[in-house]
Amino acid sequence: MTGGEFQESGKAFGGSRGTRTRANLPGRFRTGIRIGRIALTAYVLLMLALLALPIVLVVVASFQGGMEVASRPDGWSLSAYEAIPTNYWDALWFTIRSAFWATICALVLAVPAAWGLVRGNLRERRFVSALVLLPDAVPSITLGIALLALFVPLGLSNSFAGITVALTVISLAMALRFTEALMGGVPEELEQAAVTMGASRVTALTTVVLPLLAPGLAIAALFVFVHNLVTFELLLFIAGPRATPISVQLFSDIVDRGVLPQAIAMSAILVYVGIAFHTLVAMTVGARYLAGSAMARKG
């Protein structure tokens, strides 16, 4: 809508009263606001019903010993947690270590890469930016098969290193998207100021850019880590008895033996880990950054 149109309709609606209040905004404009509100409400309700509710159900079920008893309010106990076998704990620990290292590796690679992309004024920037999004466009299962074909001759399948490399590769896309957006938010003048005061480019990066990126990087690390923790299709084929991520462990047990209480309990534990990390980051760097970074990621 153009300004002129707005003024005209404003006059038509409330011109006689002299002031333009919200009540005399043009009709179409008000309808737009109302539609937006309805859409937002629907979005929130859908998110709650389809995402939050099932998660809550898993948590509740974990205290009741099985999915089928979830509707009964009695019989709360920790028996399902006590029944978690050692190989689950081993798999969880394995996943946490692997996800942790993959996150570190991905960010260590992504920060300089993003710096080059954003500051380097590369003509190839758009191409590289698009290239790193490829893992998102290709089904993870396809990548998993490809990695298997690659890792077997290299002796990387069924190993901690193999899983970590696979997670690093898939994390890189996410990490680069985060860091590219973060880096774009640090004005180049700050680096130039540091350089004119005698800092080398690398010193400018470490003393000025990195401290400013730090809160955002913590958020990025959180998202990448939690994502790594639950990655499944990619690892399904390259996992093995010596390298079993928890997601693959749960999957194969559920396929073999059905939804056992200990599997539900372990799923609930993954939820706790995720929530714990979210809370930790929100408390240390502030919830404002959390919202901001999530927006940067979408953009």
Binding site: P187, E189, L190, Q192, A193, V195, T196, M197, G198, S200
Partner: peptide, 14 residues
């Protein structure tokens, strides 16, 4: 630029 010993005040202060 870091070896020229020139001080620069940016328009937006930076």
């Amino acid at each position: 630029p870091n070896k020229r010993n020139i001080g620069l005040v940016f328009q937006n202060y930076s």
